[in-house]
Write a protein that binds this DNA or RNA. Structure first.
Lengths: 345, 345
DNA sequence: CTGAAAGCGCTTACAG
DNA sequence: CTGAAAGCGCTTACAG
């Protein structure tokens, strides 16, 4: 039989009830935990019937009757990005074993698709919507409006990474962690810095750069360059190449390059190496995120570890709780490796 | 007002109909594409009313009435693993812009949780279930049974990566790609090989090793070692360390180590380096998967590229089509980089 | 073209 | 404790 539309021939609660010789109401109470507890003897009959018939409750019908879907929606920029996939894993953990299912939507940073995702989740009457990743405040008016209405209807909203005025969530202290990294690098003796700032229209990139440069200035150190570029591996590769071309990175004078994320640091390392400079003697490199492969690079790469999975987990737990979504801030911490070893150390 | 359960106060189709002065049937036909097309003038009134009231169709109610949920379920071992997150991204692409939403479940390779995920998806009456990643054939009896029943009820099933007797899907020619890699390495002049086989209870690992070693033997070359271990970065690290300890990897005699996946190759490189051997002069290394950071390693790492995203996309498209799910095989191809440069080349 | 009515599969006050 | 009945929000033959 060819697979056609839908699932109509599935066994229904009414079938189970008939098989067990009870009413649908009773069968429902036995099978789907209610406060009313039918007699053990009857309950057994129902369970046996359900088992024999291979009954699976129709979640759609339950959602309609109960007015709660058992669904939580997660919106990320790109699920193939380790940053978001780690968060996604954490979110699922945080949701726990309550049978809540995760609806995932990966939007490619497209505001139109983000809005469409929120609307789709609203249609599916998800109990909560989790939004991960920073976005520009600009064209988000419609998004905010949709989320507000969702909340008015009892939906819970939590932001992951970037705060939102009207919603709780779990955010990262990017600025503080970047400052802590700067502090460590200064302690190591670095004094000459360049900054690959990534895309400064992203709050995440901005906060990291501000935190880092701010701490430098507190110590009376001014970076020799702060360059914007794509917030990607290629962005790091090209911007670092520019720095070499412009004579800011050169042999014999160690410069510490802070990249606003790890993939930019990887691009930087390759660009620097291709131009014949030594790592870390000529160019020291630090990133941000602690993506998985960093420790196996050569030299291993200094970065800031952020507990992505935990952030996701906390957000997941948060939307499973009662009460208003709180606002939590978690901090990352510097992980010093070989790529920032000062010359002569 | 505190966010409580559910979404009950949302505006309903009946509200829109009343506002527009038409019947719910007409409103439904205007708003949710039916073959019957109401008059333009009326349709406009309905659309305006829906807009003014901020109407969102209740997907649960639609699913119940239409007997199709607009949901597809994806089951992976670990969404934080780049292998699976790339597939997940592809799947979402393959689903297209039809408004179908993705239900994601990450099971941690636990057969119990896989079964629970399938059951949950069945409850939610997903139109299709996609299973990614290989699993052992053993305790899967219950799983197979559940999937069979799902299919009997009209659900579509597609496997990603590993074939399944009763279902179509997209699989990878692991053995063929591994053989192609072996061939390239032989052409480069490598003659002394060791194999880190990973967990041989996984079909994926087994196929890769068999394909690789088979091609070697065809050329009259027997590997000096084939060692099992965890299919992880640490598995590679420890197993490679053992090889050094046992004198199979040593300075001055280049051995090419084939690792059944990339993360094992990364662990291998670090282990080898820590023991003072040179890459690739003493130890050449090749992996499998082409995870993102490989090209920025030093030396850059030879591997087999598998089009994960495309595999996911094909599977997504497949379950959106009519007719029986086909069985597609896609092949990876070797990517030669610095880590397998032969001595003297 | 439009609408009244039945039905999708469950849950849950309300009676008994 | 158990069941009959109404209702959740939509869709769709069936009449008109």
């Amino acid at each position: 039989m060819a697979a056609t539309e839908g699932n109509g021939v599935a066994v229904r609660l009414a079938d189970v009830a008939r098989e067990a010789g009870v009413s649908p109401a009773t069968a429902s109470r036995v099978l789907n935990g209610s406060s009313r507890k039918p007699a053990e003897e009857i309950a057994d009959r129902v369970r046996v019937a359900a088992q024999r018939l291979g009954y699976f409750p129709n979640a759609q019908a339950q959602a309609l009757a109960r007015n709660t879907a058992g669904l939580v929606g997660l919106i990320v920029h790109d699920i193939a990005d380790p940053y978001f996939s780690s968060i996604a894993r954490g979110v699922q953990q945080g949701l726990g074993e309550n049978g809540v299912q995760l609806l995932l939507n990966s939007t490619g940073r497209d505001p139109q698709r983000e809005l469409a995702a929120v609307r789709a989740f609203m249609s599916h009457r998800t109990d909560a919507i989790l939004l991960a990743g920073s976005r520009s405040q600009q064209e988000d008016h419609e998004l905010m409006e949709a989320l507000r209405r969702y909340q008015d209807n009892g939906g819970r909203v939590a932001m992951i990474g970037q705060p939102l005025p009207a919603a709780g969530g779990v955010q990262l202290d990017n600025a503080g962690a970047a400052a802590a990294l700067a502090d460590e690098l200064l302690k190591l003796g670095h004094r000459r810095f360049a900054v690959l700032a990534g895309d400064q229209s992203l709050a995440t990139a901005r906060d990291r750069v501000e935190g880092f440069v701010g701490k430098l200035r507190d110590a009376g150190v001014e970076p020799v360059a702060v360059r914007e570029g794509a917030f990607t591996r290629d962005g790091g590769y090209h911007t670092a190449g520019d720095l070499v071309r412009d004579g800011l990175l050169e042999a014999g004078r160690q410069t510490c390059v802070f990249c606003a994320n790890d993939v930019m640091a990887l691009g930087t390392m390759t660009a620097v190496r291709e131009r014949g400079l030594r790592l870390p003697d000529d160019v020291a490199v630090a990133g941000f995120d602690d993506i998985p492969t960093l420790g196996d690079m050569f030299p291993s790469v200094t970065t800031v570890r952020i507990p992505l999975e935990e952030i996701g987990r906390m957000a997941g737990e948060m939307v499973m709780e009662d009460g208003d979504a709180r606002r939590l801030v978690v901090s990352g911490h510097p992980v010093l490796r070989e790529s920032t070893r000062p010359v002569g150390a």
